[in-house]
Amino acid sequence: MESWKTNRAVFWVLSLPGSFWLGFFFLTPLALIWILSFGEKTGIITIDITWTLENYIRALEPVYLEVVWKSIWISVLATVLCLALAYPMAFAISFAPGRWKPLLLMAVMLPFWINLLIRTYALIAVLRTRGYVNFTLEWFWEKADAVLTFIGLEQLELIGARFEPLPILYNNFAVIFGLVYVFMPFMVLPLYANIEKLDKSFLEASLDLGAGHWRTLRSVVVPLTMPGIVSGIILVFIPCLGSFLTPDLLGGTNAQMIGNVIERQFKAANDWPFGSALSFLLMYATFGALAIRSVLSGRQSGMEI
């Protein structure tokens, strides 16, 4: 593909729409936000760009660091859960009979067809105090209670005098549950792509050489699918870190993530400079994570899979 050098005009024309889009709708707003993060609010709608570092200093106050720290561990937990659930899923799809594969992949991607907001509200209906999870649990409780009454043990109140619904909405659990649910396909798909193109004779060779299935998984499959695992982690962890809709709807008042704080600065608090500074801190943290990742992967030379 050297022809772009001889046909410069074609090259430029073809790359123009994309470059324009990227420049106008992505880089320009980003630059504006960056500049704003060095500004000072002087009125309700007026902001002076004074190149102050005040916003960044304020962003490093313990109250915000705490939110950042919480966002990180919630995202880490959600990512780990995604990986734990998606890996066997991707493995199963990859080893499923040929005609099942498209159906199973479709099942993974099906939630994409429904708006995120609607899906999240549906989760509320499932998780709330009078929701489907608690209805199901209550049904089991009633049956158990009936059995206990029947055998004359109701006086001992082994399972409580009455059914206590589980508090599974408006807390950290609900946020993590929602994040895992929303971002699962982003983990399954890169893993599937990687496992699918893995030469199955590596697995057979490992078994043939005396390794059991778990050993094969640990020593051969996981190292060889590391690129897929890393892509999946990045694709899940980064959006988790910046998510605001899921914690906003599913989290309680204290289940706030950094995304919610940023959103509030731009809207309720009307403090754009501070919101911008927080946004950029989040972006720097993401860059940092990516840099660590490339350093780590650079160390494993010869892993061109």
Partner: peptide, 16 residues
């Protein structure tokens, strides 16, 4: 993994 035989695969399957 419990058989006293070993195999050389067509693709060699040397772990990369």
């Amino acid at each position: 993994n419990r058989r006293p035989v070993n195999m050389v695969f067509q693709s060699y399957a040397v772990f990369p």
